[in-house]
Write a protein that binds this DNA or RNA. Structure first.
Lengths: 232, 232
DNA sequence: CGGCTAATTGAGAGACGTCAAATTTGGTGG
DNA sequence: CCACCAAATTTGACGTCTCTCAATTAGCCG
């Protein structure tokens, strides 16, 4: 499969796998199909959009992962959120002219792009969509609250432990979870440096709390990790 | 005026000064008046709601300030947001059972409480309200993004400088702005300690960048402060 | 196998936190 | 108006967590 810029498919989004909008039922899916929504493929280093660009589209992630981040005046990145398949992102355009953050795939991402203009012309279904977006927003706000607590009130080990637990949430203890983020990206997410993240990984691997193979991780001792995610 | 618990007025909210909902026009204000929305007064140490309580109401702040915060397992507070008059807060109930954070007035707060149940029975106006809440949410999400950048990627001086600039935003350079937060609360907002905040204040006052009198501050050298809010 | 990038590891420095004491502030009652 | 008290703030000395800088190793792809 070719995910280069030139290889990006510009097809209609199929009604399947539309994540949040699936709740709207097939009625809506039909409508959405008639919108000029495009399915787009992105590879790792290329941006879906940059902070400050005109916010023309709302995106649904269909596969892969997307990191949303802001950049300091010194060029330091802070990852705001990692988007998982089925989730929506980039809805700044519903409120403001420009995107508030940048969006880049972690490795690869297949997204469905819905122009903001299309959402305005939904007629009877507009309210439903706005309700769904409202619900999604509130949930994200709650998630942001949690992240603010992490960054503002916790130490490095607590942050990393929380992150790993969340990342591997719902995975069987003996199963491997692909760690799509590099050390740098984990550091940028947790407000730390590559080195501190690396040291904690090394320590916990030596202690047998976690395991890592290729690009995947496994939580060996969840109890211990939960312990370390708590402020003592 | 008595803001003690016992002195809390339980009147209907007048249609004036309803902040975000004002956009809905008088039509809606009439409807809102018919809802069982209560005007409530709170004084500093008493909570409007606590994290984990059933999220039964949505609030509009009519006067004063409210801090929204989460508490660590170690009892450390992180202030998520400071609510200003006209703003809405506590809309977790539209999505989840329980409040996700706690809400306490900084000094005093007059709020309008709208039961979630009432919002559900708005009929034709429900969509309008949900749209307004969606818009508000997106804006708050953008604000949260900025705060995450502050906490994750900036040093103490940069955080405090940004905060002061935002707090005094739109105030004439020779006017005083009431600093409603204590040193502790500023520290809890910025993810620092009382002492570091105090030291920075002392330094900047010595340098003549800011001034402080009673509980009010004034930015003497905005250029210098902006300089210090940027990552170097 | 070479060459590049990511990750690891070590040593040292610095920013911020912690602890404790001194000082100021604001409110209260004489 | 002043004295007094409790709480908030300031200030200092010190500790430590995390960053910084640098060198080494591991992983990956042609």
């Amino acid at each position: 499969m070719d995910y280069k810029e030139t290889g990006r498919g510009e097809n209609r989004c199929s009604p399947h796998n539309l994540g949040i909008f699936a709740e709207l039922g097939n009625d809506f899916l039909g409508i959405l199909k008639n919108l000029e929504s495009n399915s787009l493929n992105y590879a790792a280093p290329e941006a879906i959009y940059y902070a400050g660009e005109p916010a023309t589209g709302v995106y649904i992630l269909r596969s892969g992962h997307v990191k949303l981040f802001k950049t300091t005046s010194a060029g330091k990145d802070q990852i705001i959120r990692v988007v998982k398949p089925g989730e929506i992102f980039g809805f700044d355009g519903l409120v403001s002219e420009l995107y508030n953050h940048s969006a880049v795939p972690l490795r690869q991402a297949e997204v469905c792009c819905i122009p903001v203009a299309s959402l305005q012309s939904l007629g009877a279904h507009k309210a439903e969509v706005e309700r769904l977006i409202m619900v999604r927003c509130i949930k994200e706000l709650q998630h942001a609250d949690e992240r603010l607590l992490e960054l503002g009130a916790k130490r490095s080990a607590e942050r990393l432990a929380s992150f790993l637990l969340e990342w591997c949430e719902g995975v069987a203890p003996d199963k491997w979870t692909p760690l799509v983020l590099s050390r740098l990206e984990i550091a940028q997410l947790l407000g730390l440096t590559i080195e501190t993240v690396s040291r904690l990984f090394a320590l916990w691997k030596r202690e047998g709390v976690i395991r890592e193979l290729h690009q995947s991780i496994q939580i060996n001792d969840a109890t211990q990790l939960k312990l370390r995610s708590l402020s003592n």
